Amino acid sequence: MSSAPATGTIPGYTAGTWKADPAHSEVAFTVRQLMVSKVCGRFTGSDVTIVTSEDPLASSVTATIDTASLGTGNERRDGHLRSTDYFDVGKYPTMGYRSTGIRPSGDGWVIDGELTCRGVTRKVSLAVASNGFGPAESGARRARFSATTRISRRDFGLRIPMDGIGGVVGDEVSITLAVEAVLQK
C-alpha cells in the first residue's frame, strides 16, 4: 500500500475551509454524439467547499451545481439538455457531490464520494491533483485543484427516447474540474 503524498510536497499547503471562486473555477463535461463528434459543455453555477485538514486524508469536499447553468454553446441543445429528457431542471434544479473519503494514488489523490443527479445517488471517485497553494494579488490565500472522472449518464436516468437504436449520445461522460478556492477567515 502506498503512503499519502506528503503535505510538504505541496508548496504552501494550508489547512482550512476554502470556497471555490466561480470566476476562476470550472465544471466541464464531454460526451460523444453520433459516435463521431464530441459535445463539450460546462456548468457556470456551482458552490464548492473544500476543507483541508492537517492530515490530508481527513479533508473533505462538498459541491452543489446549478443544472440550469449548463451551456454547450448551442441554445437549442442546451434547452433539450435542461428538459425532462436529461437534467429536468424544473424538478431537479441542482446536483450535488459529497466526499466520503480520500486516499493516495501515485503522485495525487482519489476522492471517493457520492454524486446525486436527478434524485439518483451513485458512488463517484475523482482523480485529484493539487496545483498549489499561495497568495493572490488581493492578498487572499488561494488553492488550486484539478479533478477528473467518468460516469455513465444512464446510471443517473439521463436517457433519451432513442437510446436503444443507434447511439445518438454516448453513455460515458467525462467530467473535468478546475477549482481555484479562497481560504475563508
Rank of each mutant, 00 (worst) to 15 (best):
S130M: 10
V27W: 00
E75Y: 04
M162K: 09
G96A: 14
T14F: 06
A178V: 10
A136N: 13
T148I: 08
G134Q: 12
A63P: 01
C117I: 15
F145W: 07
T7P: 14
A140M: 08
D78G: 03
N74H: 10
A28Y: 00
V39G: 06
Y97D: 09
C40H: 13
C117Y: 01
T149Y: 04
I111N: 02
P93N: 09
W18E: 01
R98N: 09
K38L: 14
G45M: 05
N74E: 13
I65M: 03
I165H: 12
R77K: 08
T49Q: 11
S130H: 11
I50G: 02
P56N: 07
R77L: 06
A143G: 14
P93Y: 06
Y92M: 03
L34H: 10
Y97N: 11
T64F: 04
W18L: 04
A6H: 08
I151A: 03
S99F: 08
T52W: 12
A28V: 00
T49F: 04
V48H: 01
T148L: 08
T14Y: 05
D66C: 07
R76K: 15
R98C: 03
F156R: 03
I160T: 12
G132S: 06
W18V: 01
R82E: 06
W18K: 01
R42N: 12
I165E: 05
R154Q: 14
P135G: 12
G170I: 06
S99W: 07
V48E: 02
P5D: 04
I50S: 03
T176G: 14
V179C: 04
K38D: 15
V110T: 13
T62W: 02
L81D: 01
T148Y: 05
T116A: 09
P5A: 05
M1P: 10
V61A: 15
I65C: 02
V173M: 03
I175V: 15
K38Q: 15
V128G: 02
A63I: 05
Y97H: 13
S60I: 10
T72P: 13
N131S: 05
I175G: 01
S152H: 06
I65Y: 01
D163A: 08
L34Q: 10
G139P: 02
S138V: 08
R150A: 14
S130K: 00
A6C: 02
A129E: 12
A28C: 06
A129P: 00
S53W: 06
S138R: 07
F133H: 14
V169W: 00
Y86T: 03
I10H: 04
D55Q: 09
G108F: 06
D85C: 11
G167E: 11
G113L: 02
Y92C: 02
G45W: 03
V182P: 02
A6K: 13
D155P: 01
P104Q: 04
G41S: 08
P93S: 09
R76P: 00
